[in-house]
Every structure is written in structure tokens, then in C-alpha cells.
Amino acid sequence: MKIFAKCLHTERRSAGLYRTDFLLKVLYSMIAMYGVRSLWTALYAQDPAIVGRPLPSMITYAMLAVALDIIFYPSALSTAPQNYISQQVRTGRIDTDLLRPVDLQQQLLARNGGAAAFGALWLVMPAWLLSVLFLGMELPPSLFHGAAFLFSGVLSFLILFSLNFLLGMVCFVTTEIRQITMAYSGILTILSGKLIPNWLYPEWMQALINVLPFRCIFETPLSIYIGAVGNYEILCSLVLQAAWAGILLLLGKIMWLGVHRRLAVQGG
């Protein structure tokens, strides 16, 4: 936990060091938000049935997805587990990670979590505020929905982190992970509800998506935010998210134990 706080602090300091970069990110997210807003407005004008939701809700959903993507976007951060692990494996520095008295998964969770928390506070918050003021972003329907959204967002991060960590474990099997990463990003984009909310997919696809963890990353928190789900369903989806987070973290831990044992026997 303290490591996490230190990492948050580190990120804040480096944002201060690279101020233009930081401002560009906020600007970029505003432009991207404006873009998705125009897109859905145009679609809605053609045929409201395509969208399947009131326009303001849909716009809110899409813009918030853009904002969340700033902190979740996998290749953006050097602390993202798959990026860090592939770098350490490629350079042979993975040895040095074994010298720490803290487990690699925990190290990375603290560091990546610090970076994400920074992104949430200093990038998403301003972008959200600006879009509420100028782009017609709605507020959540109730305080409960707002709180549930925040909680769900944390769980989203944990799920995404553990999937990324699992992807990082692949580095130990094949040193080249670019192609796998590309496939993975594609799957995330399509199945997480980041671009297209699940209710717009045909039914068989919705059935598939429902049994996969990806939708928990974007769709779950965003649906909560726009009030598309009732109180009881909110609780259910939070439990589902927590279950996925737990399972995937555990799976990552088990894989890491295996990898670690192999490293300790065979050398880096």
C-alpha cells in the first residue's frame, strides 16, 4: 500500500516534469470525446433505434469510455505489467526483479496502480469536469450509482491489470509478444464495451461476451454510471467483477510461481 502511494507520488512528480505532455493528454482526450460525441449524434440522427438508448446517455457512455481509456490503455504506461516484463526479459534485467523482497505481481500492482490512480485523479477528473461543463456529459442518476461506478472502476483496473500480467507471463514462453499483444488489444477493444456497448451486438455475441471477463472492464462501470442497470443488477455485476479479479489475480500468481521456479533453476 505504501509502495502504491510512493508510485502515485512518483507519477505526479514526473507529470510536473513533463508538463506539456500532460496537458496534451488532457487536450487529446477532449478532442477524442468530442469525436465520439459527434459520431453517436450522427448515428442517432439517422435512426435512434440503432443506438438503443437516449442520446445523452449514449454520449455520456462513449465519452466516459474515452476518459477511462486514458488510464487503461495498455501500451501507454511503462508500468503496465506486460510492457515492463517484456522489457526486463528482453534486456536480461529480470534477474534484478528477483532480488526484491516483494513478489513481482505485487510490485507491479503497486506501481501500475499508482500510475492509474494518478491518471484517474489528474487526467480523467479534469477531462470529466470539462466534458460535464461543455460537452453535455451527464451526471450519474444517483449518489449510489456514482459510488458504485467508482468501486466498479477499481475492480475494472484489477481485472485489466491481471489480464495484462498474464500477457506478460507469455513473454517467458515466447520472447516476441507483439503479435499476441495486437490480437489481445483487438479483443479488448471489441469485447470490453469500450467502442461498442454490448447491447448493440447480436444476441449470440452478447451470450459469448457475458461469459468472458472483458466486458467487466468498460461495460460494467459505464453502464452503472449512465444508470442502465438497476440497484440489484449493480450489486450482481460488482460481485461478478470481484470474482473475475480474484480468479485472474490468482491465475497470474500461479503462473508467476511456475515461471519463477523455472528462472531459479535455469537462470535468466
Binding site: K2, I3, H9, T10, R13, S14, G92, R93, T96
Partner: peptide, 19 residues
């Protein structure tokens, strides 16, 4: 090879190690 974090300022690395 370094055991410090490549992209992180030295002082921040030391601070993280402290924890």
C-alpha cells in the same frame, strides 16, 4: 545491468525501495 527502474528518476526508485 541496473536493478533500478529504467524510466523512473533515481530518487523515486530509492523512495520505492524504501517502502
Amino acid at each position: 545491468k541496473t536493478s533500478l527502474w529504467w524510466d523512473v528518476p533515481v530518487i523515486d526508485s530509492l523512495n520505492i525501495l524504501k517502502e
